[in-house]
Amino acid sequence: MATLKFSKTHEWAKIDANIAVIGISDHAQKALGDIVFIELPKIGAKLKANAQFGTIESTKAASELYSPLSGEVTEINKELLNNPQWVNESPFERGWMIKIKVENSNEPSSLMDEAVYKEFAAKEAH
């Protein structure tokens, strides 16, 4: 059973065994507006938790994407590069960005679960 976790920088990680699928939250895509470009890492790239893994451009703003977990990139959503609007339309499904092999099984516990994240995002908006 996959577990959905969120970071303070508004990325989500769906973790199943030692593989995490990563994207940005619905709250984040709404704040960004219409997404026109996405830049993702190469397969094999080693990511550190909270370090930048890509950029996302909306409304002439290039915003940095941060990995919620450490690990090696095993897959990227290549179709998303040509369809960046999927992040707006379907942030948790078609808008997924990368898959990583999780390096440290303790790291997910430092992330927020959905209810806590929703509260966090709502507070931040005010």
């Binding site: 920088t9 002439k60 703003a61 290039a62 915003s63 940095e64 941060y66």
Partner: peptide, 9 residues
């Protein structure tokens, strides 16, 4: 004119 942003943390 025109404007552009970078967002870092």
């Amino acid at each position: 004119g025109g404007n552009a942003q970078r967002r870092k943390h």
